[in-house]
Simulated scan of single mutants.
Amino acid sequence: MLARADWFKSAIRIVVLVGAGVAVAGCTAQYRNHGYVPTEEDLAEVVVGVDTRDSVAETIGAPSSSGVLDESGYYYIATRLRHYGPSQPKPVSRELVAISFDRSGVVSGVERFGLEYGQVIPLERRVTSSGIQDSTFLRQLLGSIGNISPGGLVD
C-alpha cells in the first residue's frame, strides 16, 4: 500500500512538472514574418532614370503590390509580428520599399520606409528631382515675383 502511495505522488509530480513546462512554453514569444523586401544589394542594382518596370521585376522580383489607379509604382512590404500567449499578434517592425515610375515607365525614385512608434520614417531615398517644389501654383507664381529682373521685361 505504501508503494502505491509513493507511485501516485511521483505521478502527480510528473504531471505538475509537465503542466508547468507547457505553461512556460506557451508564454514564450513567437515571431512570424510576412512579405518580402529586397536587400540593399538588390536595390543597388536598380538605377534611377535607366531601369524600367520589367527590368525591376526581373532584378528584384514581383512586388507585393503596385499602384492601383495609375500604376505609379511598385511596393515591397515586410512585417514581423510577435505572438505572446493568448493575446493578439502585434507588429514589431514593418518595412516598405517604394519604387516609383514616371509616365514612360522608367524608375524615378527608390525609397525605403520604416514604422517606428506608429510613425512612418524614411530610411533611405534615391529620387530624381524634377526641379519643381511640392507647392501650389499660386505659391510658385507669387514666389517668382521677386526673381524678375527689369532687363528681362524689355527684350
Rank of each mutant, 00 (worst) to 15 (best):
Y117E: 15
G151D: 03
Y76G: 06
R94N: 14
G118F: 12
E58I: 13
D134H: 09
V37S: 09
P150K: 05
I132D: 09
E71N: 13
R126C: 11
T28V: 12
D42Q: 15
D134F: 15
H34P: 02
Q119F: 14
V48S: 10
G67A: 15
V120K: 03
R139M: 07
V50G: 00
H34Y: 11
Y75C: 02
T28K: 10
P38T: 02
S100W: 03
S66F: 05
G35I: 10
V106Q: 00
E71G: 09
G114V: 05
G151C: 10
E58N: 08
I148E: 08
R139I: 08
L141P: 10
Q30M: 11
F113R: 05
M1G: 02
S65D: 04
P150G: 01
V48L: 01
V56R: 00
D54L: 15
I148F: 06
A5Y: 13
S130R: 01
S93D: 13
G67E: 08
L43Q: 13
I77R: 05
Y84F: 08
R13F: 06
I121G: 06
G146M: 10
S64V: 07
K90F: 14
S10M: 15
G151P: 01
G73Y: 04
R139N: 11
A98V: 05
E41W: 00
V68F: 13
S72G: 14
G26W: 03
S87E: 02
E116P: 02
N147C: 07
R4N: 09
D134Q: 04
I132N: 10
I132S: 09
Q133K: 09
I77D: 06
A78T: 10
S66Y: 03
D155Y: 12
D54V: 14
P38W: 00
L43F: 05
V68C: 04
G118W: 03
L17G: 13
S65P: 01
P63L: 06
P63V: 12
Q140D: 14
G85M: 08
L153Q: 03
F101P: 02
E124F: 09
C27V: 00
G73C: 11
L123A: 10
G118K: 09
I12K: 04
S144P: 05
V120D: 00
L138T: 08
F101G: 01
S130Q: 12
S72T: 15
L123N: 03
S149V: 10
L153M: 07
D155S: 14
E95T: 12
H83C: 06
G152D: 01
K9L: 12
G131A: 14
G85P: 02
V47C: 04
L43G: 07
A25T: 08
D155N: 10
Y36K: 11
R125K: 09
T128H: 06
A78S: 14
G131I: 06
G61I: 14
A3C: 13
S93R: 04
P63Y: 06
V154C: 11
T28A: 15
L96E: 14
S93N: 10
V110N: 02
A3Y: 06
Y31W: 11
E45M: 10
Q133L: 04
V56H: 00
R112W: 14
Y36T: 08
G114H: 04
I12F: 08
M1V: 07
F8H: 11
V47H: 01
A62W: 13
R112N: 11
S108H: 07
F101Y: 06
S129K: 10
V46H: 09
Y76F: 02
I99R: 04
M1S: 07
I60D: 09
L2R: 02
S10E: 13
G152F: 07
L115W: 13
D102P: 03
P86D: 03
